[in-house]
Nucleic acid binder design. Structure first.
Length: 146
DNA sequence: TTTCTAACA
DNA sequence: TGTTAGAA
C-alpha cells in the first residue's frame, strides 16, 4: 500500500480544514459553491477534505492573494481547460457538451446530463485532478494531446 | 456540539 | 466575507 494514497483520504472536517488553511468556514463553502473545489461528502452530508484538497485550496489562495485575480477569474481560466481532449471524448459528445461552449465555469461545475461525463465522478476525473497543483499546471497543459 | 443549506447584511 | 435561520 503506497503512502501517497493517504493524501487522498478525506479526513478533515471543515473546521479543521479552515484552521489549517487559515481561512474561514464560509470561504471554504464559497469556493465549493463556485465550483473551484469538490470536497468529499460523508454519509451524513458533511464535508471532508483530504490533504490534496487542502493543497488545491492553497493554490487558489495564492492565485487570489498573490496574482490578484478573482474567483471569477479562476473560474474563467479553468473553463478554458480542453477537457474533451484530455479525456478523449468524441466530437459528437464534445459538440453536445455544455462545458465546451460555456466559458464561465469549469467543466466539473456543470451538471452533465449526457456524454461520458454524465456517469463519472468529477472529483475522480483527471481533468479535475490534474489542475489541483499550481506547480504542475504548465506541465499538464504541455502534455495535453501527447 | 458541529455542520448543513439558503438567504441576507 | 460574515451572520443567521432552522434542521440533522
Amino acid at each position: 500500500m503506497d503512502l501517497n494514497k493517504l493524501d487522498d483520504k478525506p479526513i478533515f472536517p471543515i473546521r479543521t480544514a479552515a484552521e489549517l488553511l487559515k481561512i474561514s468556514i464560509p470561504t471554504l463553502r464559497l469556493y465549493e459553491k463556485e465550483g473551484l473545489i469538490i470536497p468529499h461528502k460523508t454519509n451524513s452530508n458533511q464535508r471532508a477534505y483530504s490533504k490534496h484538497d487542502l493543497e488545491r485550496i492553497e493554490c487558489i489562495r495564492k492565485s487570489i492573494k498573490k496574482s490578484k485575480i478573482s474567483i471569477n477569474g479562476i473560474k474563467a481560466m479553468l473553463a478554458m481547460i480542453p477537457c474533451w481532449q484530455i479525456i478523449g471524448c468524441s466530437d459528437l459528445d464534445r459538440d453536445n457538451c455544455i462545458s465546451y461552449s460555456d466559458s464561465s465555469k469549469p467543466c466539473w461545475a456543470h451538471k452533465h446530463d449526457n456524454g461520458v461525463c454524465a456517469t463519472n465522478e468529477c472529483r475522480e476525473c483527471t481533468v479535475y485532478k490534474d489542475f489541483s497543483e499550481c506547480s504542475k499546471v504548465k506541465e499538464t497543459i504541455q502534455n495535453i494531446g501527447k
